[in-house]
Design a binder for these strands. Structure first.
Lengths: 345, 345
DNA sequence: ATTAGCACTCTTGTTATCTAAGTGCCAATA
DNA sequence: TATTGGCACTTAGATAACAAGAGTGCTAAT
């Protein structure tokens, strides 16, 4: 982890850096020395400020679009800003109340809550909001239901602790009596354990239960495979918010963002890989492993369900975002989602 | 319905119109009189062509970006082109084979097929492809499964003829014995009828079955409500394809297209309203009721499942699209989806 | 009816010029 | 020695002038 603290940035310098970034985020235009001393009470001459900015540029925190332009932050600059200069804001009381109400309104369907949460994130941030569903692999099995839907296909319906319902067809044919036996067997043996463990457990139990009908055990084995191939969902909202001339002036970053959004599988993989550490997580521009995100910043947090199954939520926006606000927002919303799942138990 | 046939366009004129639109679609630049006589074998002078183009402009088929520019088609021009001048092309044999293979590969999960179909549409068109799932209201009930998931919530799982699985939580608590009775009751009475009729049928049957336990009948009534509020799904792919400088040079149409895609409910409503007539359907620019689509063209066709439950599929692209190709594509893909559902029965 | 020819219009690209913003550096200063 | 005022220098961006090119509309001739 990079450690760029106030320690190594002399006090005055860090004040300049902070002011430059703050101002750039507000205006989107390169910040000159005069603009700085006018708008922030800096008791220095413009020349002194220029010297300091030149230093900050040498150290890699700021850069120059061209010789005669003001300074703009580099990714390293944003990073220092986020690491040391940002304080989480308190939420406006009205907004928090509004949020709470939203969650109380429809509290039954987990999927609806997740989708609503991504909408809330996008609305309040004015950027792209997303919620990756609790990782099914770490989720706990609550119930398994079986329905014969044709003479060659059985529908397996899985309900997890976090309230998510998944279903999959499997090539199996059984009589009603056999289905009942299998259902009891599966629920008996798998209820309460994680989805990831399910397959192993089935194989284990099959060994112990040789007295059961072979057909049923074969079917159980087949169903075991289902648990490996469960695709998690992701809810994305507000992509159009990011599409503005203000944020970008050519189509490429926009295109790649949309493409990223459309490829759910990739989305989930990347998000889970890069953003699964606990606590608020910020990746700025090139810090993102994915080329599609190199002109964007991502702010995330994990949320927990039953202390083990976890999901990730967050926002994606331009690098020039109000980090304080966004981090506070993501923090608050993940808290609320935690609460939702806590009450669910 | 507009009727702009060859009847009212004198033969030579319609040839000019056709050539102008064809050329504009290819190049994207206003078409001048010289370009026309050079590239298409028109045995007229440029002046004569100019006169004809002036006529076509007066009649509203062409327009002028500015005095000294060539002509571009109006929406009315495109309409005439599509209505009278387009012939469906045959599909390249390799492409058709590729398509067929795709459908044979994964033929079990209906949802997967629909999602795959939207991907195929987007890939082959290079625009946005979409598939609206078969209208659940017109779909036929195949099976209803019930799972008590807590001491206040019952999960209702609905499987339809077209292979789509829907689930919803309902505030009901029953014993296992009661659940079994209710399940039998529901499947007995509802299997084979359409989702739209389900609620009415339940109410009817409740009257006839007063001997049953009141708790169960109350639950059945509650479940009846579920059938009213089923949200259909829509699968969209390739939105990023439409986002190019070639198609647009400002962000607004792109933004509104993305926003439209994100609001599934609105999407489905509009598509169902405007595109549910059978046969290939084309709406050009301002012919779309939705402002978001006024700079785009939409090509759709319906697909049938079991002769009654129907869905819509199609593509959304710039007005300047190759209509022949797109209409042929949509036609072919809807045919294949029809086949998929026919084999399913 | 069709065409050749020409004046006219408008876009596009190029070049030159000017202005404003902002830097970098240096000599003066407290 | 740290800070400051001053000044030369650089660059983007705006504006205007100009030429070239494309294409039209109209008219007179065929």
């Amino acid at each position: 982890m990079r450690q760029i603290g106030l320690e190594i940035l002399k006090d005055r310098k860090s004040k300049i850096l902070s002011a430059v970034i703050y101002h750039y985020i507000k205006t989107g235009k390169p910040v000159g020395s005069n603009a700085l001393i006018e708008e922030y009470n800096i008791s220095l001459s413009s020349a002194a400020v220029r010297n300091l900015m030149a230093d900050l540029e040498k150290e890699g925190f700021l850069s120059h679009p061209h010789t005669s332009a003001g300074r703009i932050p580099t990714d390293k600059g944003y990073r220092a800003y986020v690491d040391t200069l940002v304080k989480l804001q308190n939420f406006a009381i009205e907004e928090e109340a509004k949020l709470k109400k939203e969650y109380e309104r429809k509290h039954n369907e987990t999927e609806a809550i997740l989708s609503e949460t991504s909408r809330i994130l996008s609305c309040l941030s004015q950027y792209t909001g997303f919620v990756v569903a609790p990782k099914t692999q770490y989720d706990v099995i609550k119930n398994i239901e079986l329905v014969q839907i044709s003479n060659e296909e059985l529908l397996v319906v899985l309900l997890t602790q976090s309230g998510i319902v998944k279903h999959k067809r499997v090539k199996i044919f059984l009589t009603q009596v056999q289905i009942n036996k299998l259902r009891n067997f599966l629920n008996d043996k798998l209820r309460g354990i994680s989805v990831a463990q399910a397959n192993k457990r089935i194989l284990l139990e099959i060994k112990n239960f040789r007295q059961n009908e072979a057909v049923i055990l074969d079917a159980a084995e087949k169903i075991g495979d289902v648990f490996y191939n469960i695709q998690d969902d992701v809810y994305v909202d507000g992509t159009s918010n990011v599409v503005t001339v203000e944020n970008f002036n050519d189509f490429e970053p926009v295109k790649s963002l949309i493409r990223f959004n459309e490829d759910k599988e990739k989305f989930i993989k990347i998000i889970n890989k890069d953003f699964s550490s606990t606590g608020i997580n910020v990746k700025i521009g090139s810090e993102n492993t994915l080329a599609e995100l190199k002109d964007l910043s991502v702010v995330t947090n994990v949320y927990k369900c039953d202390k083990c199954a976890v999901g990730v939520l967050g926002i994606i926006g331009p690098k020039r975002m109000e980090y304080e606000k966004m981090m506070s927002l993501v923090n608050k919303v993940s808290e609320m989602l935690n609460n939702f799942f806590k009450n669910k138990k």
